[in-house]
Amino acid sequence: MRKYLVMLRVGLRNTMAYRTAVAGRLCMYTAFILIFFSLWRDIYQDGGVEGLTLNQMLWYLCMTELCAFACRSNVFRQMNDDIKNGSIAYQLNRPMNYGAYHLLSSLGDMAFSFVVFGALAVVLGLITVGPLTTFRLESVPLVLLSVLLSIVINFHMMLALGLTAFVWEENTAVILIHSKLLFILGVFVPVEFLPAWAQTIAKCLPYSYVGWAPAKLLVAFDWQNCLNLLAGQVFWVVTLVLLSNWALSGARRALQINGG
């Protein structure tokens, strides 16, 4: 276990060492929120949308952007590099689980991002629309749990997608499609905003449990909904952990290492 904690610490230190990159990401996050705020403010000129007020919608966006983009891991690119430059051969030989190694080394970065971007999200929300009108203090621990589950879901989706580098020589398109699906299915708009047929599809896919679930809990908390959303997230965590481990062991068997 100690070796994994070391990986976590190394990941955290790495992130803190590249302050300019963090500053750039913070600027990007601020720009996204302000652009979306401008867009939704214009849309809300004609009244409410799907039962959410502008105040709730802006806080919803702050939360979804935080979960889906600010706290996403770099595992896809790292795995791509490992597989394409051959260093996967060394990584797999190490006395640790390859997936757990990436998860722990990313967690340091993700924890740091969550704190820093979370603080920025609160500031941006307060500046643009004021305090969340539907905020409930008792929802905080459950929202935090939901954020944690959403980060794990997103991480394992990226891990599984990163393994496509074993099959295709160039897999950039895969991650592009993944990020757009995330965006459409819950990050930019609540799932309730989609037509009925698309809502059914969205709720059957893990994408909506990355942004929509924690943001929905934050802006429109109720106990029944909370249990359903958390149960959905737990289901997808278990499914994706099993799926990515199965895919990883398959990839390991198919791996051919030549030379020294």
């Binding site: 799907e50 499609i177 757009k180 930019f188």
Partner: peptide, 26 residues
């Protein structure tokens, strides 16, 4: 593969705008 992937990925936004204008109108 890359070119088609990019087309599909961009096309997701068309769906969003269709839904947005359908819901909001105007």
């Amino acid at each position: 593969g890359q070119a088609v992937g990019m087309v599909v990925s961009n096309a997701a936004f068309v769906l969003f705008w269709m839904i947005a204008f359908d819901r909001i109108g105007g």
